[in-house]
Structures are given as C-alpha cells and as structure tokens.
C-alpha cells in the first residue's frame, strides 16, 4: 500500500512540475524567451491562492483562478519594461526578478494569516480542497486526479495556442525577428502576451503545490527550482509539449530513483549524497550532449 501512496505522491509532484514545464516551454521553447525567473510566477501563484483562500475564504477554484490572474498580471508588469532586451540580458533580468519576488515575500511579513505567520514563518494550515468530503486514505488519489485535470487543461490550451495562428507567429519570431515584422506583426506585443500566458499557467502550478503541502514559505522558491524546470524542458526537447512532459517525468525519476539506488550501496551517507547530486548533474550534461534536441524533437512544419 505504501508503495502505491508513494507513487501517487510522485505523480502529483510530476503533474505540478509538468504544468510548470509546459508553461516555461511555451515561453522559452515556442516564444524563444529565455526566462530564468520562472519561479517568480510559481511563487506568486502559490501565495495568491493561499491568501485568497485563507483570508477571503473563497473556494479553492477561485483561489486557483486568482493565482492564474495574479501571476499573469505580474508577467505583464515585468515584461513591459524589459521586452526590448536581448536574450541573455533578459535571462539574467528575469533571474533577478525571481529573487526580488522571493525577497518580497521573505521580508514583508505582514503578508500573513495571523500570528507567527508570513515572511520566514511561512503560512501554515492551507486548506486542502474538498478534504471534508473525501476520506483521508483516498485523498491523495483524488488530488492526483485534480492535478492531472489541471495538467490536461494546460496541455490542451497551450497546444491549441501553439498550433493556431498565435503559435505560428511566435515560432516565426523565435526564428527571426524580421519576417513577422515585415508582415506587420508587433513582436514586442507578442512577447508580452507569451509571457503573460506562460506566467499565468505557472501560477496554477504554485496554487496546486501549496494546497497539497498545506504549507508555503519563501524558501520553496529558490532559483534552483527554475533551473530544474529548465533541465526538464531541455531534456524532453524544447519547443514541444510532449517533450516537456516526458522531460519532467525523467528529471523527477532521476531525483527519486537515485534515492533508492543509494540504499543498496555500502557508502557513507555524506559521500553518497554528493555522488547522487553529481550523477544528476552529469546525466543532465550527457542528455544534452547526445540528445541536443531533447528526447522528442520539435515537429517542424512547412507552410
């Protein structure tokens, strides 16, 4: 039974990170924008949903909707002034924006739900949706279903966008600025839209994560999380959604399976932990070396 629960937990996390990597893939893979501050949207989504549900006592779904809107709004705010930056400048600027968001929630401890909450105290007791109706032993399965639903929704919507006219213009911008410009498309406007859509979906992932852990604090949103999501989409194959999902699963499995492998190795725990991280790092490098376009290549179409 325990094994099953563990598997369910693993899949819930995979779904949450799956939404993250789909949304990053939309911005980076399809829109060609190297966003290294994706965790900012994750963070804002998590906090928005938490605060809406706990302070305004709205339903979980409204909280998630709020997360969707708030992180989309934030994406709009940061992409307006920075939309003219070159890729590498943009990458580091977004990395900085991600850290500023984290520092904001770390230092502004009035954003809280009571005594000993907010800031580094974190926010405890975030309600799980429909927990009173569903018995505890089935609950993880229900939540798995819920996250899967949101993942499917994200996949469906983004896939529609990518294959539609919007996605075609985006890909054209990614390949070359001049062509869409000559067709009268406003590149900057398209970039802002891409950021907003991707950011908004990342917000959903944040909400889903914290309603499961029932706890959130700013240390959930260190820059490392963004790097991991990047590894996911690169391994799976940047530019297509199926690749992003497979990459998510693989990086997740890499993190989990190494925990189990180590149980059979007679090495001291200290060294083992280092070796585990080394092998994760090396595997990312190896995948990048031998599968430069990722596991699933982007389907290039001629129009």
């Amino acid at each position: 039974m325990g094994v099953l629960y563990f598997f369910v937990y693993l899949m819930i996390m995979a779904n949450v990170y799956g939404i993250l990597s789909l949304s990053l893939n939309f911005q980076a893979g399809v829109g060609g924008m190297s966003n290294f501050g994706h965790v900012a949207f994750f963070c804002i989504g998590a906090y928005t949903s938490t605060l809406l549900v706990m302070l305004c006592h709205v339903h979980f779904l409204v909280g998630i909707l709020g997360a969707f809107i708030a992180s989309g709004l934030f994406a709009f705010l940061i992409s307006i002034p920075t939309r003219r930056l070159k890729a590498d400048y943009w990458a580091i600027t977004t990395l900085g924006a991600g850290e500023i968001v984290r520092l904001f929630f770390l230092n502004e401890s009035w954003i809280s739900t009571g005594h000993y909450s907010g800031g580094p105290f974190g926010i405890r007791g975030i309600p799980r949706p429909w927990e009173s109706i569903i018995p505890g032993n089935i609950y993880p399965f229900f939540y798995l279903f819920l996250t899967l639903l949101f993942l499917g929704l994200t996949y469906f919507i983004l896939q529609r966008l990518i294959n539609g006219p919007f996605g075609r213009v985006l890909k054209a911008i990614r390949e070359d600025d001049d062509l869409p410009l000559s067709l009268g498309k406003n590149i900057h406007e398209f970039r802002v839209k891409t950021m907003v859509i991707g950011g908004a979906f990342a917000g959903i992932a944040g909400g889903l994560l914290v309603h499961y852990t029932t706890y959130v604090d700013p240390f959930f949103f260190m820059p490392m999380e963004t790097f991991i999501v990047w590894a996911m989409i690169m391994v799976g194959g940047i530019g297509n959604n199926r690749g992003a999902l497979i990459g998510t699963l693989i990086i997740q499995l890499l993190y989990y399976s190494t925990r189990f492998l180590k149980d059979y190795l007679p090495i001291e725990a200290q060294l083992l932990a280092s070796l585990r991280m080394i092998s994760i790092g090396i595997l990312i490098v190896v995948v990048m070396l031998f599968l430069q376009e990722g596991l699933v290549k982007e389907k290039k179409r001629l129009y």
């Binding site: 980076a28 190297s34 890729a87 590498d88 990458a91 790097f227 990047w230 590894a231 690169m234 940047i238 060294l271 280092s274 070796l275 991280m277 080394i278 994760i280 790092g281 090396i282 595997l283 990312i284 490098v285 990048m288 070396l289 430069q292």
Partner: peptide, 26 residues
C-alpha cells in the same frame, strides 16, 4: 556543442555546475 543554441549551452553548464559543486563537496 559548438553550434548549439545558447540555451542548450546554458542548461549544459547548469548540469555541469551541479556536478562540479558536489564533486568539490565529495
């Protein structure tokens, strides 16, 4: 990876960084 995209190179260096950092630790 000479001809690869700068993003591919960045992510490779990310993985390399994790390995080197923990190598030092080991």
């Amino acid at each position: 990876l000479r001809g690869a995209s700068s993003i591919a190179l960045m992510v490779t260096s990310l993985g390399l960084g994790i390995a080197l950092r923990n190598g030092v630790r080991a």
